[in-house]
């Protein structure tokens, strides 16, 4: 790629950070973002000029997120059952994100659903691209994203958000 790498950071930096948060949670997201963009910078000159930069970055972020989650002190992976109440992370004020309970609800999704929601809905990648990253078929990726959204709708503190649903 001959375009300045800074353009990729400007265009996709915020989305990739949100994808990292959705994929592995806010605690590890900053590390995953840093590792992703450092790797991407090193490989940038070899990327074909017509490559889909966002899909490429999300693919790197996926690998980094897996690495970071594996080596992280506390794995930000989902619990087996959806908790009855998803409390905001009031114990870590500086970690509270805009709409912290939405991210908590995301973290409670099964792995594949959470990743498919992150890569399709947050990153905006088409299902076949998502499937290439997470494995399996495009149809399965589409189903996982849909199931994930459906589950979020039921777990994401709906009674507090009446104003949003009008």
């Amino acid at each position: 790629m001959k375009r300045p790498f800074e353009q990729a950071v400007t265009e996709h930096g915020a989305v990739v950070l949100r994808v990292c948060r959705a994929a592995i949670g806010p605690d590890e997201a900053d590390d995953a973002w840093s590792e992703t963009f450092l790797s991407a910078l090193r490989a940038w000159p070899d990327l074909p000029d017509d490559a889909n930069v966002r899909a490429w970055l999300v693919t790197i972020a996926h690998r980094k997120a897996v690495d970071v989650a594996r080596t992280g002190a506390r794995q930000a992976v989902p619990v087996a059952e959806v908790p009855d109440a998803l409390a905001p992370r009031g114990d870590q004020p500086e970690e509270v994100l805009p709409d912290g309970d939405l991210w908590a609800a995301l973290a409670a999704l099964p792995d594949k659903q959470r990743l498919c929601v992150a890569y399709h809905h947050v990153a905006g990648l088409p299902h076949p691209e998502v499937a290439r990253i997470v494995g399996g078929t495009a149809a399965a990726a589409r189903r996982a994203a849909a199931d994930g959204i459906a589950r979020l709708r039921s777990t994401y503190a709906p009674e507090e958000r009446v104003s949003l649903h009008v």
Binding site: P93, P98, D99, L102, L152, E160
Partner: peptide
């Protein structure tokens, strides 16, 4: 709206619990 929240979280600070 849920998908919108996911994709535009920077501006969706309507939650009363949000401190950010």
């Amino acid at each position: 709206d849920l998908i919108e929240l996911l994709t535009t979280s920077t501006t969706s600070t309507t939650s009363t619990t949000s401190t950010t």
